[in-house]
Design a protein around this nucleic acid. Structure first.
Lengths: 348, 348
DNA sequence: GTGAAAGCGCTAACAG
DNA sequence: CTGTTAGCGCTTTCAC
């Protein structure tokens, strides 16, 4: 029964024996229940440090039904936006004694599901999710595992706990800024429209164009993959047009990186011939030439905020489930830098 | 006893009852032990899906002594190098049925220790660690929690499982390349020398300089913090020198970003007045102007390799502990791009 | 205040 | 092949 390897960790019983008390006393000092005489308590604590005792959290979780782990699944940590969200969440969680299990879904719903299942099997107390898309998100919401807060992309047709920015307004104002610069041929590079933040951003763009009475030309709305290569390919196509756009609006930092590659490869002056603007504010935005005009999202705060909501949900677990989903909306900010300028005289 | 919240998940007993079998049969089908008649097995499986049964991994872990979780602590996911290492490790681990718990130490040994303890308390089966420094690493190694593999930075004075690159040679050859370009005033920006990869890189630099009979001038070896701001400040100081260097060698991508900022702010032509070269190959290296000459590390592979070693250690846990620490060394590659060129005629 | 004992959900003997 | 049962290490009544 004990044949599967040397037991290399101690248990409460060991501490109890060493301190000459019962396990329940050990448990009590461990959980700072003020029912143990200070004298005994110190004796117990000495015993604990003497053998480097570390209570088995899994066992505790099994007993209490609370693991104090929260799960997080994001598309890809390699994207600085998500990395920042992660940091924000982690810092808050760690501060409150929770551990974090992170998984990358690569935007593949099946993989996402697999991770979610694993997390549930681990009996995490709650999850933070940047879903791969809004359909997947809705299904996940239905299954309703445990306290869950969405980030960046929310389920279609359903209210859910979430933290986002006002993507419509952000894109609207950014587009207006471009229009104010004299641009009329404004292209937008968007990722999957099943991802709500993309959809909202596109809507904001359309709204601004409509208001300015600028016809939205189909060939200026290009659907890309979310990644760098997608942005690159999209930009290449755009520049191949008879009438290339005078401004490009990238809906995330990854695609913007791709556009930069294209610009550089084709030696297209920016903002001379074309202005470029993007969502997100990756660190490199200020070292490229020209520096990039961006819509900065408070990514770290977004993560932190998600963690806060989740923790609140977790503790209020017992209350009537009826509490309305909470959705917090954080402020984004247009940071004008060098990559956007007045439409060129040449008019092309 | 059941007062702490509605039991919202089922247990094997429920499945057993529903399928009209015993729990051990359920356990057997769950673990694909080929001892159950196909007939019963399907009945059990039906029952499982009917109630959306998800076995409690924590309970299993408690029983088996193996959680199938591995812990990972890294300085900061926000650094693309570590993010890639993480992805490599995660992909391999996930593929083999393991879950990953990641923590960021911010290079603070106390925080690192705290995370390590938490991970241990969780009874992770093993850990992958990019330590905050090599002293901390050694202490951690001493405490010898569980299977452990170091990445990028290894403990001082001790053999340990690790995956690294040949930093000395990589830096040596890169420096030689610079020297071959005619540079003699080559500055190196390094982070904490208590971090072995930095120390080794510096050694490689020194070796190349010595071999070329170029005196190593103290003011050209600048110790920076690991971060962007450190690189920036260091570069600023370097350019303030009476005889500024004609080439700068940054020992990681973060500091290089800082140098780029300085270059851009001071309008210093690169590689015209100064060449720049760095360790790591962040994505932005090819969109900045000039594109950056880098020493590319196989970051994803490093992570994957670490995971592989760890898994091997975990399964061979039972064997005599005597197996020598394994250290694998992966290949790095010098990618020459635009930011390095012949030393300028002007000679300054 | 302190201790004995039951049980969280699972696995692994072992008996049938 | 299937079922019974004893724990894994912890928390938590409930007696004392």
């Amino acid at each position: 029964m004990t044949e599967q390897g040397i037991r290399n960790t101690f248990r409460m019983a060991d501490v109890a024996r060493l301190a000459g008390v019962s396990v329940s006393t050990v448990s009590n000092v461990l959980n700072n229940r003020a029912v143990v005489s200070t004298e005994l308590a110190t004796k117990v604590r000495q015993a604990m440090t003497a053998i480097h005792f570390s209570p088995n959290r899994a066992a505790r979780g099994l007993r209490t039904g609370r693991t104090e782990i929260v799960g997080m699944v994001i598309p890809d940590v390699t994207n600085p936006f998500y990395a920042q969200v992660l940091r924000g969440a982690e810092d808050h969680l760690t501060e409150h004694g929770y551990e974090l299990m992170v998984c990358n879904s690569n935007r593949r719903p099946e993989l996402e599901q697999r991770h979610l299942n694993a997390l549930h099997a681990q009996r995490v107390d709650g999850m933070i999710l940047v879903p791969s898309n809004s359909y997947a998100a809705r299904e996940i919401l239905m299954r309703n595992y445990s306290p869950l807060v969405f980030v960046d992309c929310v389920p279609f047709d359903s209210k859910a706990n979430a933290v986002v920015i006002d993507n419509v307004t952000a894109a609207y104002e950014a587009t207006r800024y471009l229009i104010g610069l004299g641009h009329r041929r404004i292209a937008v590079i968007t990722a999957e429209l099943t991802y709500t933040s993309m959809l909202d951003r596109l809507e904001g763009y359309h709204k601004a164009m409509r208001e300015a009475d600028i016809p939205v030309r189909m060939e200026y709305t290009v659907k890309s993959t979310t990644e760098v290569t997608g942005g690159y390919a999209s930009a290449m196509n755009l520049f191949r047009l008879d009438q290339p756009p005078t401004a490009i609006f990238s809906l995330n930092n990854r695609m913007a990186l791709g556009v930069m590659r294209a610009l550089r490869e084709l030696h297209i002056p920016c903002p001379g011939n074309v202005s470029l603007m993007t969502f997100d504010d990756p660190e490199w935005a200020t070292v490229v030439s020209p520096t990039l005009t961006v819509i900065e999202q408070p990514s770290y705060q977004i993560g932190k905020s998600a963690a806060k909501i989740l923790l609140r949900l977790i503790v209020s677990q017992g209350d009537s489930e009826a509490n309305e989903p909470e959705v917090v909306q954080l402020e984004s900010k247009l940071l004008v830098r060098e990559s956007t300028g007045p439409v060129s005289e040449s008019g092309q």
